[in-house]
């Protein structure tokens, strides 16, 4: 990002000469810089911007990815609104997002809080908690498939050993959602814990010390100091988890295949989009789903933005209360 700013800045500062001469001059003057940033922009135009714009066009056509493209106007979107399978996918996405994000962030916060204490082998634990995030998804799917397998899985073996009844972790609608959520939690908790840990380290130790001097318990230190001071980081992780949750694809795909399992209980929005475009070869509809997802994402971006800006308006009051911490908070979120 910094490169674009560097290029853009002199252009704006350009000056007061005539408009045509100025542009020519500037091009002449700065063209080595333009050439220098060109590789990124050419690649971005070809693989980023063009597909983006083309998908808008595609969503107004009926196309099998090979034959002639037939312009159908808004037919794909009209179909989308009445498509129960799409709304099922939206519902699934939100349920799985909720079921995974809430426990994941709480767990990550607790782990980070514990890792922040003076314990031995800190580095080892940090690496250990981050490893799931960089593990191959295919390997993970095989392991999860075995662990949650209906009649031969570890979980069901444990349940039956304890006298419970076998549960269809991969065939029951709720079982499927729980399994996917667990997979998401397993993969992303460590990542979020590391982010929280970075945030924790920017909280001045004096606060903790004075709290301890005042005789505060561990729990009240956690709820009264750690959580409020971590607010920007928590907001950041909520935003990234929302983005990740809305575009959930790999976990259900490797676990259940392209059809989302029994009753399409594991069908998420992006998996449905992939299914329509690359197994049904209905690229027009796939593109329409992509843009519907975009609209949903925009709505959430607005909600997030409102949350963040609300925080900004209350900031002066807060910073007066917790003077030393306020300046450090923006850094923590990066």
């Amino acid at each position: 990002m910094s490169t674009t700013e560097q290029v853009a800045a002199p252009v704006q500062a350009g000056g007061d000469t005539g408009p045509t001469r100025r542009t020519g001059n500037r091009l002449k003057k700065f063209w080595p810089q333009y050439v220098a940033v060109a590789p990124f922009y050419i690649l971005f135009l070809v693989f980023g911007a063009f597909p983006l714009v083309f998908s808008i066009y595609l969503s107004f056509t009926q196309w099998d990815g090979m034959g002639p493209q037939k312009f159908v106007g808004l037919a794909q979107y009209r179909y989308l609104i009445t498509d129960g399978r799409f709304w099922n996918a939206v519902e699934n996405t939100f349920i799985i997002w909720f079921m995974s994000t809430v426990p994941m962030l709480i767990l990550a916060l607790i782990i980070a809080f514990l890792l922040h204490q003076n314990i031995r082998f800190k580095g080892f634990y940090r690496v250990a908690f981050f490893i799931p995030n960089v593990t191959s998804m295919v390997a993970m799917a095989i392991v999860f498939g075995s662990v949650f397998s209906d009649s031969f899985g570890l979980i069901n073996s444990a349940i039956t050993a304890l006298g419970g009844k076998e549960f269809g972790w991969l065939s029951d609608p709720w079982g499927i959602k729980i399994t996917i959520a667990v997979m998401v939690i397993w993969r992303w908790t460590g990542y979020n814990a590391i982010l929280y840990l970075a945030g924790l380290q920017s909280i001045p130790t004096e606060l903790y010390e004075s709290a301890r001097v005042d005789g505060a318990s561990m729990f009240s230190i956690f709820t009264r100091i750690t959580v409020p001071m971590l607010r920007p980081v928590i907001l950041f992780t909520v935003i990234t988890s929302t983005i990740g949750g809305l575009s959930l694809f790999t976990e259900p795909q490797v676990l259940l295949g392209n059809d989302g399992g029994t009753g399409e209980a594991g069908m998420t929005i992006v998996l449905y989009q992939y299914n329509q475009a690359f197994t049904q070869f209905d690229f027009g509809y796939g593109a329409a789903i992509a843009w519907a997802l975009f609209i949903i994402a925009v709505i959430f971006a607005i909600i997030n933005w409102r949350l963040v800006s609300e925080r900004d308006t209350t900031k002066p009051k807060k910073s007066r209360r917790n003077t030393p911490a306020a300046p450090t908070s923006p850094e923590a979120s990066r």
């Binding site: 498939g145 075995s146 031969f152 991969l170």
Partner: peptide, 18 residues
């Protein structure tokens, strides 16, 4: 029918005779 929808279950079922 066994309602064995995923391949881990299926392979285990054939191996064990379930």
């Amino acid at each position: 029918t066994g309602n064995q929808q995923n391949s881990t279950d299926q392979n285990a079922a054939w191996t064990s005779g379930k």
